[in-house]
Amino acid sequence: MIEALFAQTNYVASKKLLDATVLRHEAIAANIANAETPNYKRVDLAPTFAAELSRAIADKSVSQVANLRPQLAVDGSATAANRDGNTVQLESELLRMQQNTMAHALEVQFISGSLSKLRSAITGRLT
């Protein structure tokens, strides 16, 4: 019964997005750690995740959203800038990291907002 409070599609989706953002940060951390390793291929969030998430949200199916598993995949579109076969570019990696941190802040704000709305609905007080 109480679960129904936390089963809105948007809330579940933003929780999933938070998971995905943390996973993406791990990927970027691994890429920057291996910025100088010969033949390292950069990893990122699998591009299928975004498509599956938007499909699940369009279907308004909470279980479908909850069953999504963000995964990492080797970025096949990245090309090596020099002859050592490493596909990491430090600048774009740092830029992606900043974007990711901003996205994380936004998702946290959204989740906090949902929870505080719920709280003011329960207590009847605006906190």
Partner: peptide
């Protein structure tokens, strides 16, 4: 120079990760 720039980039990763962790811990604090 390459080495020290890469070192700095890794420090930036830690800084961002810490910020993310603190934000997550602060969910519903306000």
């Amino acid at each position: 120079i390459t080495s020290s720039r890469t070192y700095e980039a890794n420090l930036a990763v830690i800084k961002n990760a810490r910020q993310m962790a603190l934000q997550t811990l602060a969910i519903s604090k306000h």
